[in-house]
């Protein structure tokens, strides 16, 4: 079956290979996560306004919780936020069609008791899918911005 599929070898370098020596493992940076002491609706607002302040567009907010409560999930507060800059998304998906399944990047946000948690894939993971140095810098910027947005997100309730 696999033979029929042209599997594209976009090699993911160090950040994905789980290294035998645990000291070398870099799990921490593959996902970026943050906790907010704001309740879900407020935390969601904080997240979206910070995203916009950083110059990004919220392209869509997707509910993925429909039917979850009925299945024993205690929260119905679970959304996925699609985020990006138009020009960069257009440029990257055109030049690297293999990135398309990952674009635009997403942030998932869910309630955990009185808190709200946000999670996203570190853009460095996408960066490792391409070679061009110039283009790789786009992901460095994204990474910085994610840290900055998540900082706003996690500190909001303290202001």
């Amino acid at each position: 079956m696999m033979a029929r599929l042209v599997v594209l070898i976009a090699l993911l370098v160090s950040s994905l290979s789980v290294v035998a020596n645990p000291f070398a493992a870099v799990f921490a940076s593959n996902l970026i996560m943050a906790r907010s002491h704001e309740k879900f609706p407020e935390a969601m607002l904080t997240l979206q306004s910070s995203i916009k302040e950083h110059g990004y567009t919220v392209a869509r907010v997707q509910r993925i919780d429909i039917g979850l409560t009925g299945m024993g999930f205690k929260t119905d507060k679970y959304r996925v936020v699609f985020v990006g800059k138009k020009d960069e998304i257009q440029y990257l998906t055109k030049k690297y069609p293999e990135l398309t399944p990952y674009m635009p990047p997403k942030v998932s946000i869910f309630a955990e008791d009185e808190d709200t948690v946000a999670v996203t894939v570190n853009p460095a993971v996408y960066k490792d899918m391409i070679d061009d140095e110039e283009d790789r810098r786009i992901f460095d910027r994204w990474e910085n911005d994610v840290y900055s947005v998540f900082k706003d997100f996690s500190e909001a309730a303290e202001n």
Binding site: L5, L12, S17, V18
Partner: peptide, 13 residues
């Protein structure tokens, strides 16, 4: 442990 050094393709295409 998850010690899988295997390098995997990023996408199925």
């Amino acid at each position: 442990d998850s010690a899988e050094d295997e390098v995997m393709p990023a996408v199925i295409v």
